[in-house]
Every structure is written in structure tokens, then in C-alpha cells.
């Protein structure tokens, strides 16, 4: 089962809307509450990353009986050094973004913590694709 959501760059007022929709779906599927929480936290971080850094993006969710796979692909500046971006506290967010309470440099590390498999591909000045997979337990 697939669901696709559009994410608008720079629209902080809507940041989290897509993740919230996915949460509503997972709650209907009787998935363990702790798993839902991890998935939603990871998705929210990825969604905010697109809003904060990219022009636009899509979140594509693929649900299988035992797992959820999310691909968040954006058109944006890309990440020059993925290893550096994975470090806690490292952030390229502008002061304007930080004022809104985002950009603490916890995004990618938090995603890694909250999913079972994470792949990041990025091309500078083109965009970033984050693919995360979480397995349902029980």
C-alpha cells in the first residue's frame, strides 16, 4: 500500500502535516505504539529537513505487512558531507530557521536512532533522498 505526500520548502506552518497523516494510518493498523512513535519521530525530522533546507519534496510511504518504508526526496542544496551531517549538533540551518525552534542539528542523527535502516543519497545543488525502513514487531 502506498501513500504520497507533498512537502513545501519554507512552509514551517505546515511542517509535520505529512508525518501526522502517516501516524493516523499506522494507528489504524494496530501497530505497536512504541513503533509508531519511532516512525513518526523519524518522519517528522525528515519532513522538517525538507521544509528547512529544500525547495520542495515528496514523502512516499510504502506499507508492507511487516514494515514501513519511507522515501523522502527533495529538490534542494543537497548535503556536501553526509558523515558530518550525521553528527549531533551539526547544523547548517539559518538563524531565521533556528529562531522558529528548528535547526538544532539533531535531525539526521535522530532519524538514524528512530529507524531500523537508513540510506541517504545526495547530490550537491540537486537534492537529497532519504530512505528509511522500520520493521513492525509482534
Amino acid at each position: 500500500m502506498e501513500f504520497t505526500y507533498h512537502i513545501e520548502g519554507g512552509d514551517f506552518s505546515r511542517a509535520g502535516a505529512a508525518s501526522s497523516e502517516v501516524k493516523k494510518i499506522l494507528k489504524q493498523l494496530n501497530i505497536d505504539l512504541a513503533v509508531i512513535k519511532r516512525v513518526v519521530v523519524a518522519l517528522y525530522e525528515a519532513e522538517v529537513n525538507v521544509v528547512a533546507h529544500a525547495h520542495e519534496g515528496i514523502m512516499k510511504i510504502t506499507l508492507a505487512p511487516d514494515s514501513i518504508e519511507a522515501v523522502i526526496a527533495d529538490k534542494g542544496p543537497g548535503i556536501p558531507d553526509i558523515a558530518l551531517a550525521m553528527q549531533e549538533g551539526y547544523s547548517t540551518a539559518s538563524p531565521r530557521v533556528r529562531e522558529m525552534g528548528f535547526g538544532a542539528g539533531m535531525g539526521l542523527p535522530n532519524i538514524k536512532k528512530n529507524c531500523d535502516r537508513l540510506e541517504i543519497e545526495s547530490t550537491v545543488n540537486a537534492g537529497t533522498t532519504v530512505k528509511m525502513t522500520t520493521f513492525f514487531t509482534g
Binding site: M1, I25, K27, Q28, L29, N30, I31, L63, P65
Partner: peptide, 15 residues
């Protein structure tokens, strides 16, 4: 919220 106790059945119902 849950459509079914069984996850596969819940997924079919959602479809």
C-alpha cells in the same frame, strides 16, 4: 482507531 487486531486484515481493510 485500529481497523482489526490482525495487521494484515487491517491493511486489507484500509485498502
Amino acid at each position: 482507531e485500529k481497523l482489526d487486531e490482525n495487521r494484515s486484515v487491517a491493511m486489507e481493510k484500509m485498502q
